[in-house]
Design a protein around this nucleic acid. Structure first.
Lengths: 361, 361
DNA sequence: TTGTAGGCGTTATCAC
DNA sequence: GTGATAACGCCTACAA
């Protein structure tokens, strides 16, 4: 016997509404390919190099000619071929951005904010994901040698010594973010994760909690936050009641699982927990609700990052917040200044952290 | 009188732990810049063009020579200069990807899945954000004329007729996704938003709800979902109790606000609401909880997209789900096939939608 | 202030 | 199967 596969009804076509854009006749199909600098030059009655200068260093070109040239550029929609430009000048218009996890709204916001600064100035952002993997990070940095972007931006700092060296040797601006190390590769817009941990400890102590636990990674930024947290907890004369490590990229589900495990193991010894990021913290809140624990009565939760959810769930999540949009903007601005000018004056910027008190503590 | 600014204590330095990578001596600093094809040719005892062929079309080169060349390439870490290549051959290794909103985990996952296919094959993804703005979309598509990427990928379909034309004229593979229009520009991996709306209506009706409302955009994909929803609601002999439109990029807060407004206006006339995306639906759930409404007893909520949160909140969110990772993978594979081979056989792929029943209905 | 000459690194084309 | 030659489009260096 043969099974007849179940008949599915055909999909409904999405009747997408087409919209007419601004009419751009341009009359002929000759306009098809992007015009070359030579054509612009001919139409403006100058030499190609003058067009190039009018676009790159306008003040070297006579006012009158410049206007004529720009008019032609506008009319023809000329855009210089970035490959030819990069090849001849060694100056690419590509800025490579690497995030550890594309799907994190925090990183995405920072990258987006940097893009908002760089793109109007003729740079294009190329985004790659390192997935918290040294191997992936290394291979992406390798590929930069060939790509020769104008600059590189990381939402994080580079830990591998070999990669730091490779980046220095690229001899282009390198921007690190999201931490405040002693010796950045080049430029830095970051905050002190260690201080964030300290703030969390201070806050919990100040609110009267004494049996405190930690959930987070034990490497990278998680480790830094834990360090500061531990230090301050010790200074305050408390013991860390428990520590629970999660692996690499962590989400809400990990936070739930981690708190569950923590409570099963250390249950009543705990009255507050510091989660190294907000997703973990949200997960912890959900698990607490699941167990019908009073928050913050029976268990207080504090996060790190001020994600989208923090203000929306109930109770609101107390968290340590960095202005991530500002990190992206500043990084973009500093890169832009360096790319278009003389050696920049500032290469390091510290972003202050804020503690945002909500209902969960 | 002058204010003395409050003294802040200096930031704690993040004591990042540096890690030594694999030792790669390469003995000298001469290896610094990426070697050129000519050097590889010299070391292998062949001409530059033969090296080029050995890399691009290996079967045109004699076995023996090819091996020698590849060994040298390996040893020197040679990688061809993508700008020179793009300039001469018109073949870029860049694939341009445009998302309407970088911060959406759904889009990010799709892009990431496509990247996972394309990157190991030597292509690099360049991500841009159109912000649901025709103007931005148009200007990005303009800039493609100069960049000449190998292909373009959209997490969405292009509505503006002028942009569709511009993309066709680029004469490179164009991949649209996330909808199932009658006439894609070129390639398509999509699902029927209209069918999704129908499924939502069917489900709510089947569960016994009769006073049904809609929250979402009234343009783009939201409109398609609403269309199908409305059609099916009518076929089932029901009336749509209320429709509430939100603007452009919408988040959890918009969902809360929308449901609040809906309940204030139409309150008891409503027993179920279909939200055009999961963020809105999560917002609606939170607002319902805030008002101490029984879900699903007093109000049922169904979403679209199966985001991260859907399964984590309580009650779980019933939602229409498309396998977004699969969309990205398929899009990547189809593009790759087209880029490295003869005219592809399949240029359109339909992704089935699933209804995931959880506690909210 | 403007223009001329030449080359960035690669590959298409054609000849052998 | 391999190589010589030229060209992709632009911009640096230098000259006028």
């Amino acid at each position: 016997m043969t099974d007849t596969p179940p008949r599915r009804r055909p999909p409904t076509i999405d009747e997408v509404v087409r919209v007419d854009g601004p009419v751009r006749d341009e009359s002929a199909a000759e306009q098809r390919r992007s015009p070359r600098i030579e054509e612009v030059a001919r139409l403006a009655g100058v030499s190609p190099i003058t067009v190039s200068r009018a676009l790159r260093r306008p003040n070297l070109v006579a006012e009158e000619k410049r206007r004529r040239i720009l008019a032609v550029v506008e009319a023809t929609g000329y855009a210089s071929n970035p490959h030819a430009r990069a090849l001849r000048s060694g100056q690419s218009t590509i800025v490579a951005a690497f995030v550890s996890n594309i799907m994190s709204p925090q990183f995405a916001l920072a990258v987006q904010s940097a893009a908002a600064i760089l793109e109007p100035n003729g740079f294009q952002l190329m985004v790659g994901q390192t997935s918290y993997s040294y191997a992936k990070e290394t291979s992406m940095i390798q590929s930069l040698r060939a790509l020769r972007p104008a600059a590189v931006l990381f939402t994080g700092v580079i830990e591998l010594e070999s990669n730091r060296r490779a980046l220095r040797e690229l001899d282009i601006p390198v921007m690190e973010t999201w931490a405040y190390p002693r010796d950045p590769i080049d430029m830095l817009v970051g905050f002190s994760n260690t201080d964030g941990g300290r703030m969390a400890a201070d806050h919990l102590h100040g609110r009267g909690y004494r049996r405190i636990a930690y959930i987070g990674r034990r490497s990278g930024r998680g480790a830094l936050r834990l360090d500061g947290f531990r230090q301050r907890v010790a200074e305050l004369g408390l013991d860390l009641a428990a520590e629970l490590t999660v692996e690499s990229v962590s989400g809400i589900a990990d936070g739930r699982g981690a708190l569950a495990q923590l409570l099963d193991q250390a249950g009543s010894r705990i009255d507050a927990v510091f989660c190294a990021n907000d997703l973990l913290a949200v997960g912890a809140l959900l698990e607490a609700r699941h167990r019908r624990l009073q928050v913050p009565g029976e268990l207080a939760v504090i996060g790190f990052g001020d994600g989208d959810m923090a203000s929306e769930i109930a109770p609101g999540l107390t968290t340590i917040s960095a202005d991530v949009g500002r990190i992206g903007r500043l990084a973009g601005e500093m890169l832009l200044a360096r790319l278009s000018g003389p050696p920049a004056d500032r290469t390091t910027e510290l972003i202050e952290l804020d503690l945002i008190q909500r209902g969960s503590t």
